[in-house]
Amino acid sequence: MPFFILRRCLQAVNVLVVMSLLVFAGVYAIGSPLDLLVDPQATTEDLARAAAALGLDQPVWVQYGRFLSRALGGDLGDSFIHGSPAIGLILARLPATLELAVVAMLIAVGLGVPLGLWAGLHPDTVGGRTIMAGSIVGFSLPTFWVGLMLIMVFSVQLGWLPAGGRGPTTELFGLPLSVLSVEGWRHLILPATNLALFKLALIIRLTRSGTREALQQDYVRFARAKGLSTGRVVGVHVLKNILIPVVTVVGMEFGSLVAFSVVTESIFAWPGMGKLLLDSITQLDRPVVLAYLLLIVLLYIVINLVVDLVYALLDPRVGRGGSGR
């Protein structure tokens, strides 16, 4: 077991190094930020001086080496546009994005598991079919368009909720949060619902097929034969067994939720790091793009690692197996 953990951690570090190289090479090739930053009337000498100041006159591999050695010390470079450390800019916006993603995931799980369970228990009823049809529609809904429609209905037509922004936040342990005030919820609920829709459809399907499979298993039949109430059979025996895949998917999909918040944040003007990324791409603010991508990669690797380790704990065969996936 300790050997398995060690090997997975080493793999994670490997992936991080490879990704940092790829991401750096990729981001390096995005236009020259000098054209944007320097006054168009600047002389060649001015340009050279600006390039030297930003370290852009060095060969790529020197830039990467510098970047890597500084990155190990937690410094991912200064933003070309804002002049402050890129990692600081991103970390300042991280709580807003994480809060949005966590609330969206809670909505998806909180609605998806009961609906999927119901659809799995009653597959041939009107309700079960409606839930399944709804989940197909949910898969097909373009997230960004749903965002616009939510604004149109709830902000423009009905005037119930604000169309964008985060509104006032309440501090908790130094973190600015929206979930602690009514006004915060009013700003949060539309973007969170928007972000949750796709995952909701996914969790409904997963829960439904898991339920249908579990119902055919011997342990469920035995539990029924023993005369246990339906509530107990479903609540304990079925639910326990479908929760394992659901928890896995929640873990794996959380990273993609953070990535897709780029779209939701730009529609609802939510001040998170996705909006920062989009702005930085259009402004060729290389260090911020780089820092964002590395942070996402790190998030992915940590999530994958945790999911794998939890799996190894739940299923002893994984840790001992030769392939070690």
Binding site: V137, S140, V156
Partner: peptide
């Protein structure tokens, strides 16, 4: 293109292309 006109209630510029997109994706997923 229709996003900015949404706030003034001119819903159709964004609504109908979105419906076309939705129907296309729905047909493919079915």
């Amino acid at each position: 293109n229709g996003f900015q006109y949404l706030y003034s209630g001119r819903y159709w510029i964004s609504l109908f292309p979105g419906l076309a997109l939705l129907l296309t994706l729905l047909a493919l997923n079915l």
